[in-house]
Amino acid sequence: MFTKSALHLSGLLLLAALTLWPASASAQVADTHAPDSARMEINGRLVPPIVATVNGRTIPGTMLVNQVQMYKMFHQQQGHSVSPEQEAEYARQALDNLIGQELLFQKSKEWGIAVDDKTVRAEAKKIRDQFPSEEMFQHTLRLQGLNAELLHASIEKQLVEESVVRAKIAPKVDVPEDTVKTFYEQNLEQFMQPPRWEFSHIFAAAVKQDAPEDPAMQERFHKLQNMVETDARAKINKALAALKTGKAFEDVAGEYSEHEETAKNGGKWGTMARHEMPDEIYQAVSKLKPGETSGIVRSEYGFHILRLDNALPEEAMPLDQVKSDLLNHLLKEEVEKEKDKLVAGLRDDADIEVFF
């Protein structure tokens, strides 16, 4: 929902994500922090030690490398490959973002906006604490062509950029209520909910488990499993018998159900779409009419008796339900637009040289 193409990824997130980047996938830029045997190319082009200068201040190639690596890692986690052309296009945009961040960092000094060293060190410690040892942390930094100085510099710039946004941009941004309503009406498909079923259950636990590989343990395992299964079946049968005598579903759930969270609430399990519930549960509740009760249903967790309380068709979420999230989304978009305008103005007056 509220999807928008955003190739710029937070520098802090990129650095923190070093903990997730496989060592075998690590690559370095050809600069003083990386050996010649570990140089990185983007779409066949070698990344130079310095990728740009902004009013005489340098942007190290290592920063661009980490932006590109995070981009690739994100897509790999989604199961998508990144073509050399996509990598090159992202690298271009990432370099533009790094230049923009440097421009904001330099301008922040004129505005008296700064982040104290204690805050920077605290953020660096959060990243460090993701590693099991100092040795592994330093090793990962080296694999990425980084060192403590570059790490701290990147954190400082990211925090300063956020401070600039809060102090100079966000207070000027406003999204009228009519704009929120118009966006909602023009993008109604983004707010559609699939069919959902509101239902209650009575539950007896009998989790299906795989038998141990050790043959000596298998006989004991099957005996215990059968005992659990027999006890659960007996309990769910008692619950079903109580329902057939006319006892209220809520009372039976409170007396017999082993799902404590729902039992104390009359068995109410909630409202779910098909993908949110076990298939056996869906197959049962989707065949019921509101107010009807199923027979005994076996899932991988145990035995259930289900009652359909309401069936909800596909429909759009009401505006009041999504207004807060939608407003925040539109405010962030407007803030980003204003930041881009500010950076564009700073570019016009800046001395920028690009080497990649």
Rank of each mutant, 00 (worst) to 15 (best):
P60W: 02
G295F: 04
H222L: 07
G246M: 10
Q158W: 07
G112Y: 03
Q193D: 10
D348S: 14
G112T: 06
V160Q: 05
P132R: 11
Q193C: 09
A344N: 06
G266P: 00
H152A: 15
L9I: 13
A148G: 11
K223G: 01
L331A: 06
P194R: 10
A122Q: 14
A27T: 11
L146M: 15
E292F: 04
W111S: 10
S154L: 11
E102A: 11
S5N: 13
A91V: 03
Q283W: 02
G295W: 06
G270E: 05
E255G: 03
K235L: 13
A248H: 08
R307Y: 05
T3N: 14
Q130K: 08
Y301C: 01
K332V: 02
H33C: 06
E156V: 04
A122E: 14
K339Y: 03
P194V: 08
H139L: 11
K4R: 14
M40F: 08
G100S: 03
V165E: 15
E135Y: 10
A30E: 01
K323E: 14
N43T: 01
A239C: 03
P194F: 09
L15I: 01
A263E: 02
E338I: 04
T230C: 04
D251K: 09
R39D: 01
Q76G: 12
I59D: 06
S299N: 12
T271I: 02
A30C: 14
R347F: 05
D231H: 11
L150R: 11
N226K: 13
R142S: 13
K126A: 13
L7P: 09
A94P: 04
K339N: 07
I50W: 03
P49M: 05
L306R: 00
P290M: 09
